[in-house]
Each structure stands twice: as structure tokens, then as C-alpha cells.
């Protein structure tokens, strides 16, 4: 079976792998010039934190996200499983209590244990929540590894090409265009996110750290070589222009509150992009005729794309006349 996947972001690449695993011959088409150039997953944090996400997400995000750790490990070998550390400034203890109440699979730890886990945070926080089962990955490396492995399996990549239904021929289509698929999915909306990448040798972290704050929920994800990703704003807007000064100030202030060493860090990158989301902020996999849509991954691209991809590959490779089943799948999703 021949399938054309539209979009080489996290949804497209994961779907392609699941299709190949089911024996399909896959071509990936992306209008951007190269991997990542047009994908909002290029700006992702790469946290695989299903249990932390319960703070603001439905239970299904945790249950479906839990398999993402193994999936990414198997597909790319790029997952670091050091857990997640959550801390709050003393005056924001209410946020801390609320976060603990809303989430699961964590240990409540004291300042000494915080220092054991992250020596550079010693003496800065008197309490923390440690989610030992969570992990993280470097999104760009993971996407590149996935692309390599797909090429090795015979998947063809066509960059710089607008998806043209006429060119696709009789192929089945898996549409993973993200926000660009709004022509077909009118209730898709954009949730703008801004992030920074900085470098400093003055602080080392082994795992993502979330700093709870009533106004800006902030996290920092360590990358190799003293590089850190600082994220991320959540603004109801599909505006793609560069990050605002205000957001950058907010993110840097939070980083500085986590550790003053961030004040001396070199800023490598400032980015803004738009997360595609449906009104319930949950992803949707849905087939219409020969096209299967995978979209609405919102802030959970790396966390939820594996299960969405599995679903999409299953639905897309069925004969067309079972589309009523797809409707049921859609409701379940």
C-alpha cells in the first residue's frame, strides 16, 4: 500500500514510521525546505512528562503519554530517563500544593534531596516534587534520527513541495500539516508559544526542571554542551511573528529566579511558533475518504504523537469502506 504523509513534523514522522511498520510504502511531503524548517515541533521542549502534565491536562494525556517514553527510546534511542523535578519559590507554595494535588507518580522531597538530584540547585529550594518515571529528549536530534531511520527503511522525503492532491495520485494520505490543515479542520486554533535557547557553563542540570509560578509556568530542559531550552509561553493567538520582548523578559526572569547563573547565559536563539489545538486541547485522528487527519497535538507533540501515529496508521491502512469505524476511532480519541 502506498501512503503520502503531508508534513514532516513530529506527527508526520511518527505516523510514517508506524505506516512503514505496517508494510506501507511511504512518501513524506513538506513545503518547508528542510527538516524542521516549518515544523512547530522544532521549537518543542521535548519533555516526556505525562504525569506532570496532569496538572492541566485530561487523564487521557497521562495514559496515552506513558507509552511515549518507550516508543521514542526504541525509535531513536534518544530518551534520557532522569525524571522531572518540580520546584516553587517559597512564596508560591500554594502553586506547589495545587500541583501536587493534581498530579501523580511523584515523590515529595526536601531540600537535601533536591540538592542530591541537582547539586547546582542546593540551598535554593526547601521542597520539591520528583517524578522519577519521566524523561526528556532533544527534539531536533530525535526528529533527525527519526528521519534517518525512515530513509533507511525506504521512505522518500520531498521537501520544498506544496501538498498537491493531484500529484498524490491514488495514494492514501495522512495529513499531518499541523495548523496549516485548518482549511480541512476549521475548529483548529493556534496557541502561540515562545521559547529561548541559552548556553552557560555555570550551571548543570540532569533533568527538566519546572518552576511553579502563578503567572508564568516555566520550565528549563537541559541539552548537551551547557545548552538549555527555556519555555514556554501559552497565548491564545495564531500569530507567528517573533517573540515579544515581554515574553522574553518573563522567561528570563523565571530562569533567573531558578538560578542566577542564567543571568550570565548567552542567548543562542529566541523563537515563537504556533501549536495546533482543538477546543478540548486533545489530539484527533480522523479519516475522511482516503485522507486520515492527525492534528491538534497542542503542547503534547512528542508525548502524544506515538499513540496518534499508531492510530492513524491503523485507520489509514484499512480499506476505505470501513470509514464508519474511523468515526468511532475519532470519538474514542
Amino acid at each position: 500500500m502506498r501512503v503520502t504523509v503531508l508534513g514532516a513534523g513530529v506527527a508526520g514522522l511518527t505516523s510514517a514510521l508506524e505506516l512503514v511498520r505496517r508494510g506501507a510504502t511511504v512518501t513524506i511531503v513538506d513545503r518547508a525546505a528542510a527538516l524542521g524548517a516549518g515544523a512547530c515541533s522544532w521549537s518543542a521542549g521535548g519533555m516526556l512528562a505525562p504525569w506532570c502534565e496532569r496538572e492541566s491536562a485530561e487523564p487521557v494525556v497521562a495514559t496515552r503519554g506513558a507509552v511515549a517514553l518507550d516508543w521514542w527510546d526504541e525509535a531513536t534511542g534518544a530518551v534520557t530517563r532522569h525524571g522531572t523535578l518540580v520546584v516553587a519559590p517559597p512564596r508560591d507554595s500554594a502553586e506547589f500544593t495545587r500541583f501536587a494535588r493534581r498530579t501523580e507518580r511523584y515523590e515529595t522531597i526536601d531540600g537535601d534531596r533536591v540538592a542530591e538530584l541537582e547539586p547546582d540547585l542546593a540551598g535554593r529550594f526547601r521542597a520539591g516534587l520528583f517524578f522519577p518515571d519521566e524523561g526528556h529528549l532533544e527534539p531536533r536530534g530525535a526528529l533527525a534520527a527519526l528521519e534517518r531511520s525512515l530513509r533507511e527503511r525506504g521512505v522518500m522525503f520531498r521537501y520544498g513541495v506544496e501538498a498537491d492532491p493531484a500529484e498524490v495520485g491514488d495514494d492514501a494520505v495522512v495529513d499531518c500539516r499541523g495548523f496549516a490543515a485548518r482549511d480541512a479542520l476549521p475548529d483548529l486554533r493556534g496557541v502561540r508559544g515562545e521559547m529561548l535557547v541559552v548556553r552557560t557553563d555555570e550551571i548543570r542540570l540532569s533533568r527538566p526542571v519546572r518552576l511553579l509560578h502563578p503567572r508564568i509556568p516555566f520550565y528549563v530542559v537541559p541539552r548537551a554542551g551547557g545548552v538549555f531550552m527555556l519555555g514556554a509561553t501559552m497565548i491564545e493567538s495564531a500569530e507567528r511573528r517573533g517573540a515579544t520582548a515581554r515574553s522574553v523578559v518573563d522567561l528570563l526572569n523565571a530562569a533567573y529566579a531558578l538560578h542566577p547563573a542564567f543571568g550570565e547565559a548567552e542567548i543562542l536563539e529566541v523563537r515563537a511558533d504556533v501549536r495546533p489545538a482543538f477546543p478540548d486541547n486533545l489530539p484527533r485522528v480522523e479519516r475522511r475518504g482516503r485522507t486520515t487527519y492527525v492534528n491538534g497535538l497542542y503542547r503534547h507533540g512528542f508525548l502524544l504523537s506515538p499513540t496518534c501515529a499508531q492510530q492513524a496508521a491503523e485507520i489509514a491502512t484499512r480499506p476505505e469502506d470501513t470509514s464508519h469505524e474511523a468515526d468511532r476511532e475519532r470519538r474514542r480519541a
Partner: peptide
């Protein structure tokens, strides 16, 4: 919640 004006319309539409 807007950025430039038109772009926040989805949320306002809801």
C-alpha cells in the same frame, strides 16, 4: 491573548 488583532480571533470566536 491577541498578539496582532486578527490572530486571536479563533479564541474569541469560541
Amino acid at each position: 491573548e491577541s498578539g496582532r488583532l486578527r490572530e486571536g480571533q479563533d479564541f474569541w470566536g469560541l
